[in-house]
């Protein structure tokens, strides 16, 4: 099966810090900690290029590179393509119906003040792919 690998930037992006202002596709502004599953779904519906895909966490393991990193393996979309992502352990993913989750929620809360739960195998995360333009 096809497998691709992505490495996240070594530092956390500023928009995950509690209080960051996020603009939805319809122009509405929300704080990052207030985002709901529907906000992502509705924004993707408006978008002409992006669509939401379900990415199920299949495996989480420590990185060989550094103890600060984890490798998360996802099964993406209806074709269940395998994608591995190497991220900082505090990097938050948005889980459908649940909210922000990371491999180390204590660190996420400590560094970003972002309320966060533990990312676990079986969680279904929101991810993006390109819409098929025909």
């Amino acid at each position: 099966s096809p497998q691709s690998s992505t490495v996240a930037p070594p530092s956390l992006p500023p928009y995950f810090i509690k209080g960051s202002i996020i603009q939805l596709a319809d122009g509405e502004l929300k704080r990052v900690e207030d985002l709901k599953t529907e906000d992502f779904i509705q924004s993707a519906e408006i978008s002409s290029e992006l669509k939401i895909d379900s990415s199920t966490v299949e495996r989480i393991e420590g990185s060989h590179t550094s103890p600060n990193f984890a490798v998360v393996q996802f099964s993406v979309g209806e074709h269940r393509a395998q994608v591995s992502v190497e991220v900082l352990v505090e990097y938050p993913f948005f889980v459908f119906g649940q909210g922000w989750s990371s491999c180390c929620p204590d660190r996420t809360t400590q560094l970003l003040e972002l309320p966060c739960t533990k990312l676990s195998v079986g969680d279904v995360c929101i991810s993006l792919t390109l819409k098929n333009l025909r």
Binding site: P2, Q3, S4, T6, A8, P13, P14, Y15, F16, S20, I21, I22, Q23, L24, A25, L29, V32, L35, D39, F40, S43, S47, L50, I52, D53, S55, F74, V76, G77, H79, A81, V83, V85, F93, F94, C125, I126, S127, L128, T129, L130
Partner: peptide
């Protein structure tokens, strides 16, 4: 008069990982 500092606004899609699976058509 002191103008309020502009607060950065981030687009919603920057918060979502872009996981594009390899597709075979």
């Amino acid at each position: 008069n002191v103008e309020p500092r502009s607060v950065p606004v981030f687009p919603w899609h920057s918060l979502v990982p872009f996981l594009a699976p390899t597709q075979s058509d």
